[in-house]
Design a protein around this nucleic acid. Sequence first.
DNA 1: CTCTTTTTGTGACGATCGTCACTTGTGTCA
DNA 2: TGACACAAGTGACGATCGTCACAAAAAGAG
Lengths: 188, 188
Amino acid sequence: MENFRTYIHSLIDLSEEGWMALRPALTTARYKKGHCLLQEGQVCNKLFFISTGYCRAFYRKGEQEVNTNFFFESEIATNNDSFWTGEKSKFSIQACENISTVILDRSILLKAGQENHEIATLGRLCLHQTAAKLESHASLFKLMTAQERYGYLEKHNPVMLQRVPLNQLSSYLGIARETISRIRSRRS
Amino acid sequence: MENFRTYIHSLIDLSEEGWMALRPALTTARYKKGHCLLQEGQVCNKLFFISTGYCRAFYRKGEQEVNTNFFFESEIATNNDSFWTGEKSKFSIQACENISTVILDRSILLKAGQENHEIATLGRLCLHQTAAKLESHASLFKLMTAQERYGYLEKHNPVMLQRVPLNQLSSYLGIARETISRIRSRRS
DNA sequence: CTCTTTTTGTGACGATCGTCACTTGTGTCA
DNA sequence: TGACACAAGTGACGATCGTCACAAAAAGAG
């Protein structure tokens, strides 16, 4: 919960009134490893602020699962698209460890945003932040080869390499598990 | 300009008051083929609604240019990241044909958004829309092979294949120009 | 209408990366 | 402690795709 205050402060200097308006939208929850915060086909009606642990977002493609995102401590796990438009989500979000979260409720947040200006801005900043994360990851694929992508992650997000098993990183980087393993051995 | 009204209506049912608040932010302009609407290193302080013609967004990577996006009629060309945060843009946006545009000024829009609720919502919807476009294109790379990506574009955005020359599509799809050419001939 | 530039198509070849099969750790649980 | 599941390393092989080189076609410019 302290993490959460720090996170909000990093986005906006929220007044006491703003905090009061935000509070009704908040709850906390813990989930076990393997639990799905969001299921494919559901509408994403919550933002999950991750206090401890991490999650993954994945599409199903035929028999396989393709990871498109990971959410670690002090990040917001959500499907932006579904959350803001109310459409059904095309992917799922699942806890990869036991996690504890701060949950922001969609309908309360939207209502609060209509009445309180700071909350509306906060919503936009959240949206922007998660979108920016997606965009920067997307550009990896357009600008870099497989090796370069791995190198980039090694430099800019080493935590991910340490915590996420290779078979899950594989689809995230668009590189076969074996190939990642070989890139590693070439490096050392 | 009529396109523009239609576009706005597709996002939000703007009241007469809302239109009045929006109007001061608007101007129109024409640019010649080759002109840069946004230069790498500048702050993106305008949204360009494309009335006619199309543009491309591109990064410079060493000697090469890598196209990350195309903007056609009734789309908004911008660098979301730079526009909303005020940071310098890492890529440029250039007219690929002679274009006519409706321009939304950043500072006027932000001010209008603070005073008028509809404008704030409109801003968020624009942000969301352009972000969604980026995300869906990004997922192409994680979910599909080169051939499938081409096939997807053929199905969901045939206009792009018709209007954009292969050497520019190449970097956008992450496929060599020659390979695209071969995929084409295999199909027919 | 020519000349030039740009765009597209094709062939040959090699590098990269994915797939399959198997081995080697590294827990985790009863 | 052994049994089992899961993660990671490794070798062999083939498919895909990028690169280079050149030809054909189309589009612009004067």
